[in-house]
Computed example of a mutant assay.
Amino acid sequence: MATFLPPGIDSTNIVGFGTTGLVAVFPGTQKVIKFPHPEPDARARCEVEVEVYERLERSRKKESCSTILRYHGNSKYGITLEYAEIGSLREHLRTAGTPSTEFLLRWARQAAEALVFCYASAVLHGDINCSNFFLDGDQNLKLGDFAGSSIDNSPATICYSTTHQLPTLDSSSKSEDVIITKET
């Protein structure tokens, strides 16, 4: 089965891809749509991601958090999110080189704030790595890609990227999120 593009999106709008789906910029906006691959497993992970973003948005009403990608809703085509125009932290580090100490400290604080906010909302990310942190136009770090997350201690559908997996890891916990974050 081939992945189809939502209306108004063509291949020039695609800015990212992963195991769950593709991400494309809505032309003329500061929003992206993440739409799943057609496989049932990818669609199921997308449903988990919607549930996580909706929970985090409800939590934002009680406590402000700017370190998680903003959720703008979902449709039959996919999830609409804030556009982090610089892209993933991993890509940025590959192209821009070693960041200043100022940026490293800022990003460390922002990553910690994102994780604390998630844990307070009973969400465990499950795949913390530099590909799932994104930079906006002001180089602020934002956590995204919750397709493999655990909610209320449910089993995570993805247990960390293979390149970052601990040999003894067979489940997700806050400790593993912190260990993985430190190692990536």
Rank of each mutant, 00 (worst) to 15 (best):
P36E: 11
A156W: 03
G148A: 13
N129C: 15
I79E: 01
E63A: 08
F134S: 14
S150D: 00
H92C: 06
V116Y: 05
S172I: 10
F4W: 14
L124R: 12
R94L: 13
E113L: 10
F117N: 07
T168H: 11
E85K: 10
R106D: 05
S171E: 11
L135R: 05
S171N: 14
V52K: 13
H125D: 12
L169C: 11
I9E: 09
I86D: 06
K31C: 03
T80K: 01
K182C: 05
S59F: 12
E51H: 11
C130T: 14
A108V: 06
C65T: 02
F146E: 09
I151C: 03
S154C: 15
P99R: 02
C130Q: 09
P27C: 01
F117Y: 04
S88I: 01
F103K: 14
Y71E: 02
A84R: 01
V15E: 07
E57C: 01
A147D: 15
I68D: 15
S150A: 09
S173K: 04
G18D: 08
P167F: 05
I128N: 09
K62V: 06
I86T: 14
T162H: 06
A108S: 15
K174Y: 14
L22V: 06
C65M: 07
Y83C: 11
I128K: 00
F134W: 08
S131I: 00
L124E: 01
R60K: 14
R43V: 09
T157R: 13
T12R: 03
T157K: 14
S171T: 13
A24F: 05
D138N: 13
L81T: 10
L169F: 00
E39D: 15
A156Y: 00
E63W: 02
S11Q: 05
D177K: 03
F103M: 07
A108N: 04
A2V: 10
G148P: 12
R60L: 06
A24L: 00
L124Q: 15
T29D: 07
S88M: 02
T98W: 00
C130A: 11
S11F: 06
E63H: 00
G21A: 06
E49F: 10
A24N: 10
D136I: 03
